[in-house]
Design a protein around this nucleic acid. Structure first.
Lengths: 201, 201
DNA sequence: GTCTATACGATGATAGAC
DNA sequence: GTCTATCATCGTATAGAC
């Protein structure tokens, strides 16, 4: 019944989320699993591989989730809407793992760091492609695509930090709020308001 | 000439920013200052007080910066614009300290943590007041004020993570981009687009 | 697979000389 | 104010019994 490898990962996710990777010790993880710390090394080569496993799997699932949601949407506006919604929902549903994935990069070895950064870049490039298409088709005002993608992603990622499943708002409420906020922010109509500034491409 | 207390703080800021608080040791800080680690304890009671000093001063300056900028602006739209701009600029100008202040809360003792959280809350309440006024006056669409304030603040705070002073964009470019993005996101006109959703207050 | 026991380095912090 | 020397503790990780 108890797949110990999965248990260790689950306990580690909880502790890394609450205390941070560096502030969490192998003894604490073992304590949470009801085993001795030495036993962890039968399942994992070390603490860093534990972190990498969590981050790598989370990034993989995040990308798969996005691709799955994009497959069902047509038209640039619907596709960007679907992408934002996919991003927000995944971060709300897997709050702890996504928080770790976005805040504990410094805990990885250079090799593992490179891998996760590549995953993150591939994910971001999908958003940048959508934004660029929207701008090319005149749906959105021109702007720095990379900066806009960062803005959108961090904004929605941050939602994961303050979401409480027992709070006033449901996941759908929050997804709605961000969806509107982001889509409005990109809309072309309001952009010319201010002193003729147009961001470089 | 060399105020060692200031030097220690400066070196700590640099290391806490690059490696994180828990991953930074007193020996490393001492090495960066050209002294022995024991000498640090003449200037500071311990590592945690070093972190608290940095975070507390940064939050104080952040609030003062905002109040100073708000004093010069009249009218709700200009005031929110000034607030966003003040926030972005401060985070760009004091990139390292603000990054630490927003990511190392878990390193503080409960007592110090309470103090910094109180500072952060006071700062956020100013933004929430501005948004609420804007909504009351019909300039912005109704929405969850607290969530909107979080969204705006994290969005702009994140700018500090990817800003490079040697990059393509100047601080003013970035401030412009975020200013427009946020003000557009709040604008009333586009909000009704989607399925009649209105967030509860 | 999990245990006990332990190696071994690094950590934050202190004592006391200068 | 800064040093050297040192303490007690805890960290990750390993060896080998069961």
């Amino acid at each position: 019944m108890t797949d110990m490898k999965a248990t260790i990962t689950a306990v580690a996710v909880d502790l890394f989320f609450r205390k941070g990777y560096f502030a969490t010790s192998m003894s604490e993880i073992a304590l949470g699993c009801g085993i001795q710390k030495a036993s962890i090394y039968y399942h994992f080569p070390g603490k860093e591989e534990l972190l990498f496993g969590i981050m790598h799997a989370t990034m993989q699932d995040l990308l798969a989730h996005l691709e799955c949601n994009l497959d069902r949407a047509t038209g640039i506006e619907n596709r960007l809407r679907a992408a934002v919604r996919s991003h927000v929902r995944f971060h709300l549903e897997r709050q702890q793992e996504t928080f770790i994935a976005s805040s504990e990069l410094r805990g990885l070895s250079p090799e593992h760091g490179t891998i996760v950064v590549a995953q993150r870049d591939a994910y971001e490039r999908i958003f940048q492609g959508l934004i660029r298409q929207g701008i090319d088709q005149g749906v959105y005002s021109s702007g720095d695509v990379r900066i806009l993608s960062y803005a959108i992603l961090t904004l929605c990622t941050a939602g994961a930090s303050w979401f409480r499943s027992d709070g006033r708002l449901t996941m759908d409420d929050i997804a709605d709020i961000y969806e509107n906020f982001v889509l409005n922010g990109l809309k072309a109509e309001h952009q010319e308001l201010r002193n003729g500034y147009v961001a470089i491409q």
